[in-house]
Nucleic acid binder design. Structure first.
Length: 480
RNA sequence: CGAGGUGUAGCGCAGUUUGGUAGCGCGUUUGGUUCGGGACCAAAAGGUCGCAGGUUCAAAUCCUGUCACCUCGACCA
């Protein structure tokens, strides 16, 4: 059987352009990021996928610490009575809460919610821990999983259980809480853009789209390659809503009993889905170097020949010592060509091929995953050249994503234009602030408001929907 | 929740119309030759045909029920 015949039997990825959804499924399964679990709506995150999550955790967590937050851990289960305390919050989450009703053989007196988020339990503890203004602020975060009984799920994008981080803070003043809310959104934006190479649009959610129980919700919105929006991170200012419901009070500087001002903010394993759908191509994943579990893979060519493996190990040691995340693919069961495709599918930013010819010339062949270009690179000064190359790949991925996104954001003034634009991207337009207009757009074109950007430079003065006077700049899009 | 589709070896599929001992490719195992873009030869292992009933001498195939998954829609911070 010839090579051509062989090809058709090899696993392949459905072309992105043909069926984006199927492409996504093919890529996540074949690249071994994730697998379906025996439980409906849940996923198993495999080692390669989990390694990406650990990279995201490292980058986010170090920034949380740098901004004065401490990690804690709250219990998985929340007593029903606690969950019921904040009315709007309960209403928002009730439909998707999973309940524990029995322990061993014993039916529970009070059923326990498996946390869909932990505001209520943080509030219960804060009310116990806070006494004086001297105790404030309290800025805590936890890394955990939460469960929401979702009706339809996709790995990473929406699963019944998912991993995330939830920060919960309490402050003396409204100003401080607002500052915290915006600061953490900034942190998220930096992680998304600098580390994940995903450009995001930050702004405020409409009342319709805000978090249940919040005074204000802010989000960062990313655009996937199919033009749909993915909410990639959120930050909420609760004002004193929860403090009043949970009686979180402190004795102020002038001796009065005051409610604390509270915030919460979160990012999740959804970000992995965002990386895939932002950067992936026909060959599979393209991981940004700063987040890639393996930044450089070394593939020996003719590994059995004298000196090849030795040279690979030598280069590995040199690069590892310099701080790169490196792997030598020393499998002797598959050919170099197979390895090339395999690591491209897995999105490793740089591949170094080292064979007898390279060793002769004191070089390696360097393949960069972003552009799929291959060129020789000198083994002398490799640390410097790899530093520059990885940095360039990081920048290139960001610029590509940004260019694609910006090309698909269009200013619209009419419902017809809006409908047209949300088929392929984001519509930037003016809105009067009436939820009825938002609802109408959702009903008629299945597009929702994403957020109102901080830069409110107007693109008109009438509402795209009702035509009345409008002063709110807003993005609409179809969303994941 | 609604419409449509799919369940047969680890993966991808044929076989179902017309009932008659379970097939193909990839992968896996063993041995050998290979190695610069998904290598080749030889031998071998591997399946309660999603599940439960029913019809029949006989069911992957026909009937009833059920479960899971996929696509689209509804719903969803």
């Amino acid at each position: 059987m010839g090579k051509q015949d062989q090809k058709k039997f090899v696993e392949h990825i459905t072309p992105r352009s043909e069926d984006f959804s199927q492409w996504y499924t093919d890529v996540i399964l074949q690249s071994e990021l994730v697998d379906y679990a025996p439980v409906r709506g849940c996923m198993v995150i495999r080692p390669y996928g989990y390694a990406i999550w650990e990279r995201i955790q490292q980058e986010a967590d170090s920034r949380f610490k740098a901004t004065g937050h401490q990690n804690v851990y709250m219990p998985l289960l929340i007593p029903e009575s606690l969950l019921l305390k904040e009315a709007e919050h309960v209403e928002g989450f009730a439909p998707e809460v999973a309940w524990v009703t029995q322990g061993g053989q014993e039916k529970l007196q009070e059923r326990l919610a498996i946390r869909p988020t932990s505001e209520t339990i943080f509030c219960a503890m804060y009310s116990k821990w806070v006494g004086s203004w001297r105790d404030l602020p309290m800025k805590y975060n936890q890394w955990c999983s939460v469960m929401r009984w979702e009706k339809s799920t996709r790995p990473f994008l929406r699963t019944s259980e998912f991993l995330w981080q939830e920060g919960h803070t309490i402050h003396e003043t409204a100003e401080e809480a607002q500052q915290e809310t915006l600061q953490m959104l900034d942190v998220y934006q930096e992680v998304a853009e600098k580390e994940l190479a995903i450009p995001v649009l930050c702004g405020r959610k409409t009342d319709k789209e805000k978090f249940a129980g919040a005074v204000a919700t802010y989000s960062m919105e990313a655009m996937m390659q199919d033009g749909k929006a993915l909410q990639a991170g959120t930050s909420h200012n609760f004002g004193t809503n929860f403090a009043e419901a949970f009686e979180i009070q402190y004795l102020s500087r002038d001796g009065k009993l005051e409610y604390v001002h509270e915030t919460s903010w979160g990012i999740s394993t959804r970000l992995i889905g965002a990386i895939i759908m932002t950067h992936g191509d026909e060959r599979g994943l393209r991981l940004p170097p700063r987040i890639a579990p393996i930044q450089i893979v070394i593939v020996p060519v003719a590994a059995h020949k004298g000196g090849v493996m030795e040279k690979c190990d030598e280069v590995f040691a040199q690069l590892t010592a310099a701080g790169f995340r490196v792997k030598v693919d020393d499998r002797d069961t598959v050919s170099p060509g197979y390895k090339f495709n395999d690591w491209e599918l897995k999105g490793v930013p740089v591949r170094l091929e080292i064979g007898p010819r390279d060793i002769e010339n004191n070089q390696a062949m360097a393949f960069r995953r972003d552009t799929c270009e291959k060129a020789p690179v000198a083994l002398d000064g490799l640390v410097e050249s790899m530093t520059a190359l990885l940095d360039d790949i990081q920048q290139t991925l960001f610029k590509q994503a940004e260019a694609l996104r910006d090309g698909r954001i269009k200013v619209v003034h009419t419902m017809e234009e809006l409908n047209e634009v949300v088929q392929t991207g984001f519509a930037k337009t003016m809105w009067c602030g009436d939820p009825a207009c938002e609802e109408k757009i959702k009903q008629e074109m299945n597009a929702t408001s994403r957020n109102m950007p901080f830069d409110q430079t107007p693109v008109g003065d009438t509402c795209v929907c009702c035509g009345k006077k409008a002063d709110k700049l807003i993005y609409f899009a179809k969303a994941y």
